[in-house]
Design a protein around this nucleic acid. Structure first.
Lengths: 112, 112
DNA sequence: AATTTTCATAATCATCTGGTTATGAATTGG
DNA sequence: CCAATTCATAACCAGATGATTATGAAAATT
């Protein structure tokens, strides 16, 4: 239910994407991966401020949302930010953001 | 709690922003406002697929997140998409999106 | 072989959240 | 003045969600 016929959504998984981004801890983990590159669960747990199982679950959601990749080697799982994962959000921003704010020029300098 | 010392957040309300965007119905309502311009609750309810009280609550969240404005005239409340509301998300995308996808030219490729 | 490390999953729990119906306050209209 | 319209809020409910501790499997180390 909750059909909203006029919805201009970008696929069903764009919902899981927005949901994945809605949690601060999850965003922080993703940001960390972007900045520091591939990390295993121990490293992520050390920095996340929540328990290891919680980190695993958060990473699971990020993975299902397409925002990270998981590479298992031996007993470790290495997570990395997934390049194209934000695509649908970018698209959404393009459609519903650029329409009204043209300040969409992403700036070449990330950290400055 | 849940302190994550490395978090590069853009203000506390950026959290309410992402949360506001995490719900599909809310996104749909926002999209509708962007496309159709200022609307009152009756119009929004007609199109939202949920009850009027629910629409009111959704609009409340969007308002608190800075994504819409509310203008009351008589017994009607007119909601409109708020231009600058997506700013923090755009910034976040710029920092954590542009870093890895060298630059997101949004409209170019809608399919992939 | 025994132990430690790494990770995911299960069992629980409290809280948040989306949804509903009911109600009531204003405003508008007959 | 009474009725209808518009909206927000309250009361309530079911399910999702973030968090914890406990556990167990698999790999690495001793």
């Amino acid at each position: 239910m909750t059909e909203v016929k006029f919805r201009g959504d970008l696929g069903a998984n764009s919902d899981s994407l927005f949901k994945a981004l809605s949690d601060g801890t999850r965003r922080a983990l993703l940001e960390y991966l972007v900045r520091e590159g591939e990390q295993n669960v121990v490293a992520l747990t050390a920095v996340a401020g929540v328990s290891q199982p919680m980190v695993s679950r958060h990473m699971g959601k990020l993975k299902r949302a397409g925002l990270v990749t998981a590479r298992r080697t031996g007993r470790e799982t290495w997570y990395a930010a997934r390049t194209k994962g934000l695509g649908p959000v970018v698209q959404w921003m393009a459609i519903y953001g650029a329409l009204w704010s043209q300040r969409f020029t992403p700036m070449e300098h990330a950290g400055d």
